[in-house]
Nucleic acid binder design. Sequence first.
DNA 1: ACCGGTCCCTGTTAGC
DNA 2: TGCTAACAGGGACCGG
Length: 300
Amino acid sequence: MPELPEVEVVRRGLARWVAGRTIEWADVRHPRAVRRHAGGAEDFTRRLAGQRVRNVGRRGKYLWWELADGDALLAHLGMSGQFLIGDDDPPPHPHLRAALTLSPSPQLPTLIRFVDQRTFGALAVVPMSPVCDEPAAASPCRPKIPRPIAHIARDALDPALDEGRLVAAMRARRTGIKRALLDQTCVSGVGNIYADEALWRARLHYARPTETLTVSRVTLLLSAVRDVMTEALGEGGTSFDSLYVNVNGESGFFGRSLAVYGRDGRPCRRCGSLVRRDQFMNRSAYTCPRCQPRPRRARW
DNA sequence: ACCGGTCCCTGTTAGC
DNA sequence: TGCTAACAGGGACCGG
């Protein structure tokens, strides 16, 4: 389940192989992979052929290839999307959704595959637009992000994140704290795994109403989010199965460091109480019942 | 404007 | 053993 650390691992891997190179051809193998592209598969291919790639950017769980003409190849990995460098071994991967061929370069692989079992991932060629929370006077050349994700907030590891404004926004919500963490228009990059891990670190129950949290509690929680994501990034991300791997097909190792996520029935690493799993938003929420007691006025 | 529920998808696993 | 249901879950979308 790629969240910010996993997507950043992929971004770094991609940048190493595609920055400065030219896309020769884009082959769409499944129409659903480009369902977010306005012009369909044919237009997708036409817009990419011959484009030079400047670099690879990321905000939250989105990443994009910056193209020389000013557009971007925007990608979301969904639950199981992968970019894999190099040719396939036969038989071909059963979930290959798109193949990008780069112009030949000595010693470098020319093929990048987009593989996605559960097809929640998507690719699209989109225009860029100026970042809207950036003061116009700050720089003559305002930074840009892909237009379809202009509504996605700066992510937890973004140096330009306005912490004070974020804390205020979270406390202004009228919902449970985990819902607020998962809302990508508040702060982006946090998914189910790191939300549960950060809440455990901050000793907060997921159903705590946001309006009952003090500024310092929310600030502490956001530090926990940053810490756990930074640690996960250092371990190459979290892999439960073969659905999250880096561009070389390798797993990440943060799974062994998880405190609560996926550990129901096993002892809390802090107090020994048994971790529990609750149904939450049609998925799961893992907590330690002693470290994170359910508030009397629960909200979610 | 904000909030919460639903749906999109497929492979694996648990349970009967 | 073979079937079905639950589960994994981000985010667009829609209705209140």
